[in-house]
C-alpha cells in the first residue's frame, strides 16, 4: 500500500484518493457486514427458538400419537390424525380424522363466518369513523382520543365488560333495547345459540373499529387537499367525489387494514373463549385446537388442527404479500 501510494505522482491527487478510498471502502463494508450478522444473530436465534422450532414440533406432533401425558414417547403414525380409513371388512368401512370431523368443520365455518362478518362491518364503520375524524370540527382531538379507548382495553376485559352488559337478567343492553322498544323480552345474548355469534361479533366490532378507523384515517390524510378543491370548483357532488376520488385513492390503505384484520380474526381465541365458553355456535379453529390439546387429552389431534390453521393463514399471508406488492427490499418506499 505504501509503495503504491508513493509511486503515484503527488500531482495526481484524485487518482490516489480513489484507490485509497476503494480500499478503505471494502475494508469498511467488510467490517459492516461482519457486524450486521453479529447484530442479527441474537434476534434470528430467538425467533428460531420461539417460532421456527415450535412450529416444526407442532407439525411433527400432528403426525404422531402424542398425548399430553406422553409427549416423549410419541410415535409416528403418518397422516392418521388428518385422514384415516378404517376397513370393517366385508366392504364396509369408515373415514376418521380431522378432515372428516364435523366438529372441526363447524369450527372452520364459525371462524370464517365470524371473520367475514366482523371485518366487513369494521371496515364500513371504520371508514365512516375515519371520514368524520378527517373533517375539521371543534373537539376533534377529544374524539380521536376517545376512539383509542376500546383499542387500549385488554380483550379479556372487554369480553367481561360486555358479558356483564349482555347479562340476560341485569344487563344494560337488554334494558336499553327494551326501553326503545326493539326488544319485547330480555335475550340471553351470550348463551342463546341464535345470538351467541352476534354477541361475539358486536364485541369485536366495538374493540377493533378504532384500529381500522386509524389505519384508514392515515390513508385519508395522504390525499392532497387540492383534489377536493378542484372537485368543489367543478361543482361535483360530494358523494360522487367520495366514490370516484377518495375511495380509489385510499384503497391501498383499506386493503392493508382489511388483510391485517382478517389474519387476526382467523386466529381468534380469547374473546370467544371468555365471552361464550363451551358454545358450539361460536367455537373457532383456535379454540377447537386448544381444547383438544389441553382439555381432551388429544394432543396429536389438536396439533393437526393447529397445523391446518397455520397453513390457511400462511396461504392468505402469501396471497396478501403478492396483492399488496409489499416493498421488502429494505430500501425506501
Amino acid at each position: 500500500m505504501a509503495n503504491v501510494s508513493t509511486s503515484i505522482p503527488p500531482t495526481d491527487k484524485s487518482l490516489r484518493m480513489e484507490t485509497e478510498g476503494a480500499k478503505l471502502k471494502s475494508d469498511l463494508s467488510r467490517q459492516r457486514l461482519r457486524s450486521a450478522w453479529l447484530f442479527l444473530t441474537p434476534m434470528i436465534l430467538v425467533l428460531a427458538l420461539v417460532a421456527g422450532w415450535p412450529l416444526v414440533k407442532t407439525i411433527w406432533f400432528s403426525l404422531t400419537n402424542a398425548s399430553l401425558s406422553n409427549l416423549e414417547g410419541a410415535e409416528f403414525v403418518g397422516l392418521r390424525n388428518y385422514w384415516e380409513y378404517v376397513d370393517y371388512g366385508d366392504g364396509e368401512g369408515e373415514y376418521f380424522g380431522l378432515l372428516f370431523d364435523p366438529q372441526w368443520w363447524n369450527a372452520v365455518y364459525n371462524t370464517v363466518y365470524y371473520s367475514v362478518i366482523s371485518v366487513t362491518i369494521e371496515t364500513i364503520l371504520g371508514l365512516a369513523f375515519a371520514l368524520v375524524l378527517n373533517a375539521e370540527f371543534k373537539g376533534r382531538s377529544f374524539v380521536r382520543a376517545a376512539v383509542l379507548i376500546p383499542w387500549a382495553i385488554p380483550t379479556i376485559v372487554s369480553a367481561k365488560m360486555w358479558a356483564w352488559m349482555m347479562n340476560d337478567q341485569f344487563g344494560i343492553l337488554n334494558d336499553m333495547l327494551m326501553a326503545i322498544g326493539i326488544l319485547s323480552s330480555p335475550i340471553a345474548w351470550t348463551a342463546d345459540p341464535d345470538t351467541a355469534m352476534w354477541a361475539v361479533i358486536i364485541v369485536d366490532v366495538w374493540k377493533t373499529t378504532p384500529f381500522m378507523a386509524l389505519l384508514i384515517l392515515a390513508g385519508l390524510q395522504m390525499v392532497p387537499g387540492d383534489v377536493y378543491e378542484a372537485a368543489k370548483i367543478d361543482g361535483i357532488h360530494p358523494v360522487k367525489v367520495f366514490w370516484k376520488v377518495t375511495l380509489p385513492l385510499i384503497r391501498p390503505a383499506i386493503l392493508v387494514a382489511v388483510i391485517f384484520r382478517a389474519l387476526d380474526a382467523l386466529r381468534v381465541f380469547d374473546l370467544i373463549y371468555v365471552l361464550t365458553p363451551n358454545n358450539t355456535q361460536t367455537k373457532s379453529m383456535s379454540v377447537f385446537a386448544q381444547e383438544n390439546l389441553f382439555q381432551f387429552d388429544k394432543f396429536a389431534y389438536g396439533s393437526a388442527a393447529s397445523t391446518l390453521l397455520f397453513l390457511v393463514i400462511a396461504f392468505i399471508t402469501l396471497f396478501y404479500i403478492k396483492v399488496a406488492r409489499l416493498d421488502l427490499s429494505g430500501r425506501g418506499k
Binding site: A51, K57, S306, F310
Partner: peptide, 20 residues
Amino acid sequence: TILAVSMFPQIAVLAGLFEM
C-alpha cells in the same frame, strides 16, 4: 421471514412451545 413470523397464529406454535 420476520413479517411472516409476526403473522404466525399463536396456536400454531402452542404445542411445540408447550413441550419446550
